[in-house]
Write a protein that binds this DNA or RNA. Structure first.
Lengths: 405, 405
DNA sequence: ACTATTTGTTGGTTTGCACAACCTATCACG
DNA sequence: CGTGATAGGTTGTGCAAACCAACAAATAGT
């Protein structure tokens, strides 16, 4: 819909939207009372009762009477997620394919990390089909309804085609289409960092904020995602959020993208690991090592200098983004989180002093909260998206068989 | 509403939204048939008939039967804007206060440019009150319902408070509140470039696009606005779109904002006017002079070199913004339009080659179309916003008297 | 003139939210 | 331990608004 102030509402949309709003709220809160729903959505008590009854009938949620018994008045039944329907989340990486079943509420029910060596799309499809069937067999009471994929690369959002994933060596691979055919359930795909922002928005450090800028530092570069007015931003082609290629220094090093001085060409995980002399630390180890090293050396020691320099580059990119978007919150993940937490308060303040304009003094900078589950939760969000958008329109029959071979 | 997938719909919202959608479409198209509305909105013929009847009854639109008589079938009545209700647009500047009455459909009905010398808020309020009354008196058949102000500075969107307008020497001035009190009608205020993007989106070079990045070069710097998925982006505080302070070269000149190498510190109107030896040209004169000078000199002549250099800086900011937002279209206004149009195709291509990532090769760059009416139309959009949001909820009595003293 | 086509018009239908009245379960206090 | 206050679920009715089907009107083409 090209620039409309408001979309028209036909008769059926009302029910769908309200069911969707209720289910969405349960999804995000996991458990709340019917009275909470009434307050949060502003609908009538009887309407909420009706809507919840529909969702219960469809098996999306459960209602229980063992109340929190807090306060006077008749206790309100607890509405909670129910693990009868699940979605699958898939995250192919350079050396591992990470697969999980995720419940409504964004909880990882079961997870397998399958070693792989720069898997092809065919590999991913066959492994995903097998593993999802195996996982489903462990949960015979549940059914897998849809799947989402987090891809370390550029993904065309409309059809889930991977335009370019240098880390995996993929180019123009119709990943989502292939997976949909193989799994027999709808599959969507998106950029991993973009999905990281979705996960943090819903269940992590972005909770409660309406506009969030998320930056994730990974081994292959810096990705990002943004949420504006509560809606994830895809961009025209689905490539929004590539904050790793925001220009930081036009005279800086050549980036893999062909331009000079991109954020990810200057703020590198390698610079941090080298400073503390580690070869392949995970993010937690890196952060611990940075903190220890910074504590044991002087103000101008080599680690602190590296931190200060890297933080300086980061702050320039943040400045551009903040001036452009005026977000409510910034969430840092991966090695950017380590960089932020290992830096001294003084250095942070100095970096931000120039980075944040007077208008943005109240922007909150947070560190990502979801750890290694982030991408899977984000991928699951992609699958939940369509379900939550139309809870009664989901064909509950089209699902992966739970009888694995 | 912090991050909701979909807002609940109570019973009354449906009608309001549909009326709003119809009025919005008429606002943007100015004249279309009822059949067009039916097709565009997807609602039932009878529903559209009903909605239009309500809008006619409230005086927002007219229906006429002198059809375009094109094609078989019963001709559909033409629904068109009606100038019974107007809004006022106000744009205080350094040396002039620009005031207009604007109709539904974004047409400027009448306009006055009142000379002023760095007016204070009090000046603006008294002049606006007087001039709007005068203009209203010239159109006794019409009523002025609301007003919008385009301010060259930072404006808090929630209450229209001008946080900082260096050009006018204002700081923390409750402009909208004062004007509301003085005029007796609701007044909203926003940043001028932000409103420029609104105007171009609705009626200019951004028409039809869903996501637009707008950059405007003015005497005081570079401002901008952005529209994502058809919605103008305000940001958490209302300060989004300050693309003039995107970092272009961290080693570059000091910007008035206190940071180094902001876009507006490097791409300056003064650099262009100096290159062609003019002192105070308007944008058209500047563009003509640049074109003439570039045509009359060699590839590496001074004007062309300046153009190339300025375009290079601009392209770095565009690169950051495009990677972050992946917009569908970029609209350049003010001296940035002159810079763009006066540059050679080769220079443009060279600048964009590095600026646009592979993912954004299909982004369209356009030149702003509305000229000097842009800010007034944008300011009027601000006023129309609330009216279109709830066409039957507008108190038609609360209006400026048409009997000027 | 007659037919096909498109669209407005009208009256009846359905859907779904709101509302009011009523019922129920808890807490607090005497 | 009983009674009142309070919060909230339950039920039936009302109403608003979109939809639908049938019909009428106005045009273009044959």
């Amino acid at each position: 819909m090209p620039n409309t102030r408001s979309t028209p509402l036909d008769a059926n949309i009302v029910r769908r939207r309200n069911l969707s709003a209720v289910l969405d709220l349960v999804h995000r809160q996991r458990r709340l009372t019917r009275a909470d729903l009434t307050r949060a959505l502003g609908l009538n008590r009887s309407t909420i009762g009706d809507l919840v009854a529909v969702l219960v009938a469809h098996g999306w949620v459960d209602e229980r009477d063992d109340a929190p018994r807090s306060g006077v008045g008749r206790p309100s039944p607890l509405v909670m997620t129910r693990n009868q329907w699940l979605v699958a989340a898939i995250n192919p990486e350079l050396d591992v394919i990470d697969i999980a079943l995720v419940s409504l509420g964004g909880e990882i029910i079961d997870r397998r990390r399958i070693p792989a060596d720069q898997p092809s799309v065919v590999d991913v499809v066959s492994i995903a089909a097998r593993v999802i069937a195996e996982l489903a067999a462990l949960h015979p009471e549940a059914r897998v309804l849809a799947a989402g994929v987090a891809v370390p690369g550029l993904v065309r959002r409309s059809d889930g085609c991977v335009r370019l994933a240098p880390r995996l060596g993929w180019r123009d691979e119709p990943l989502a289409t292939r997976l949909t055919a193989a799994l027999g359930i709808p599959v969507s795909a998106a950029n991993d960092a973009h999905l990281g922002s979705r996960a943090e928005l819903g269940f992590g450090a972005g909770q409660g904020a309406a506009s969030v800028l998320y930056l994730n530092g990974g081994a292959s570069g810096i990705g990002g995602g943004l949420v504006i007015d509560g809606r994830p931003v895809d961009g025209a082609g689905g490539y929004a959020g590539e904050i790793g290629h925001v220009s930081v220094d036009p005279h800086g090093e050549l980036c893999a993208c062909g331009a000079h001085g991109c954020l990810e060409a200057l703020v590198r995980r390698g610079a941090l690991t080298a400073a503390v002399g580690l070869s392949h630390p995970d993010d937690d180890e890196l952060e611990a090592a940075l903190l220890a090293a910074a504590a044991s050396e002087g103000e101008d020691g080599p680690v602190r200098t590296t931190l200060r320099e890297q933080l300086g580059w980061l702050s320039i990119a943040l400045r551009s983004a903040v001036n452009l978007l005026n977000p409510e919150r910034i969430v840092l993940g991966g090695h950017l989180a380590a960089l932020w937490r290992a830096s001294s308060n003084d250095d942070r303040a100095a970096a931000l002093a120039e980075a944040l304009p007077v208008t943005a003094t109240d922007v909150r900078i947070e560190v990502a909260a979801l750890g290694s589950q982030r991408l899977l939760i984000g991928a699951a969000e992609l699958a939940w998206d369509r379900i939550i958008a139309d809870p009664t329109g989901v064909p509950l029959e089209s699902m992966v068989s739970d009888s694995a071979s």
